[in-house]
Simulated assay, not measured.
Amino acid sequence: MRIALVAEQFLPHVNGVTHSVIRVLEHLRDHGHEAMVIAPSYEKTLFLGSVDHVDGVRVERIPSLPLAGYPEVRVASCTVNRMQRILARFAPDVVHVASPFILGWQAIQAAKGLGLPCVAVYQTDVPGYAARYGAALLEKSMWSHVRTMHNSATLTLAPSTASIASLHEHGVQRVHTWRRGVDTVRFSPDRRDDAWRDRVGGGRRIVGYVGRLAPEKQVADLVVLDSLPDTQLVVVGSGPQKESLRALLPHAHFEGFLSGTELATVMASLDVFVHPGEHETFCQTIQEAMACAVPVVAVGRGGPLDLVDSSRNGWLYRPGDTEALRDRVRDLVGDDAKRLAFARTAHRTVQTRTWDAVCDQLVEHYGRAARVNSRTNGARRTGLGAR
């Protein structure tokens, strides 16, 4: 198949959307499919796009501007006509739109105009983020936009039961499940680094968070862990709240942004992984912690509900109840037998969730979208003929 992937964010910016697009590209290449990417440009100029390649895959860059207050995130836009020209040159069998909002919406309209099947992948709770950024009044209009976009696509893929329920609640139709894989070779308990543990933890239990340092992640909730006895809080990541969090968590160790083997080593060297964000459609870092045999304490909302089996591979706590967060972490750091039992179960939980398996499912969804699109276009042509 020939697949055009349209991504609101892409390299060099690394986040969950970028990571999943990269893994999909690897799978398509390894299985004989052809792909191209349409993504924001990270050049300083607004007017000129560019073309580059990532592992042999052509990347068509669309002019973009940095998001106010969060310059690592780019906002790209082009006309639907230009998007149609780009797609027409490549002639894809399917258009895959990753976390659509602006550029993705233009791609959905362009694909529809060209009669191409379009798979829209819901990955980011933008309406939920609006409230965290002090724009709660925009949430309703954002959901209206999400509904229009996804109902214009051939089908929508969502990563968790919570995100599917939310989409249905807001009127999005034709939603199917597509979860995320985890690299169980890179993320492995074998990467545990005792020297790093001694240097950072000094013999204490290490509790860690990995992710963006931004309001929607609610990292500030970890203040209840900053002075937990006999523990060391570790924060991995970067973002607009980096400096304010350093002031709020004076006892925490900040590792900064990590990726690849460095990230896997730190993840495997934790005793407990924590994630307080309530707006996760999935939460890939939870799977990565489990692959490293690290039990998880996460908020009981959104994607973590599907990943954390409370009292078996970790604990869930009620949204907003930071005292419960503290109690759950204290329970695991203070009970070696329980923590190690949870760790073993966590490791077993994710061993079948490989990227190969989930990307095979994705290709099946591509085929489903092509069949639905063919039937729809056939019915439309028949209707026109009858008139």
Rank of each mutant, 00 (worst) to 15 (best):
R2I: 01
A4T: 01
A4N: 14
L5P: 00
A7N: 08
E8W: 07
H13D: 02
V14Y: 13
V17C: 07
T18Y: 11
I22M: 15
V24C: 12
D30R: 15
A35C: 10
V37K: 00
A39Y: 05
Y42V: 03
E43R: 15
E43C: 00
K44I: 12
T45Y: 04
T45Q: 10
S50N: 12
D52T: 05
G56R: 07
P66S: 06
G69F: 01
V75A: 08
C78W: 04
T79E: 04
V80P: 02
I86L: 15
L87N: 12
A88V: 13
P92C: 10
V94N: 04
V95F: 10
V97D: 03
F101R: 09
G104F: 02
A107T: 02
A107K: 00
K112D: 01
L116S: 04
P117V: 04
C118L: 00
D125N: 15
D125H: 11
R132N: 04
M142G: 12
M142A: 05
H145L: 10
R147C: 12
R147A: 13
M149V: 10
M149S: 11
S160F: 07
I164D: 09
G171L: 12
Q173Y: 04
H176M: 08
T177D: 05
R179Q: 14
G181P: 08
G181M: 05
V182C: 14
D183V: 09
V185M: 11
F187R: 09
P189L: 14
R192D: 06
A195D: 14
G203W: 09
Y209C: 09
Y209P: 13
G211N: 07
R212E: 08
P215K: 03
P215W: 03
K217V: 06
Q218M: 07
A220C: 04
V223N: 03
D226G: 05
V234N: 08
G237M: 13
P240F: 02
S244A: 14
R246N: 03
R246W: 04
A247S: 15
A247K: 09
L249T: 08
L258E: 03
S259C: 03
L263M: 11
V266E: 11
V266T: 08
M267N: 02
A268F: 09
S269E: 08
P276W: 06
G277D: 09
E278S: 15
T285K: 06
T285L: 09
V296F: 05
P304V: 08
D306R: 00
V308L: 11
S310C: 13
G314W: 11
W315I: 00
R318E: 15
P319C: 07
P319G: 05
R326N: 10
R328Q: 09
D331Q: 14
L332R: 08
D336F: 04
A343W: 02
R344W: 03
R344C: 09
T345Q: 14
A346W: 13
H347K: 05
T352E: 13
W355I: 02
V358C: 00
V363M: 00
Y366T: 01
G378W: 07
A379W: 02
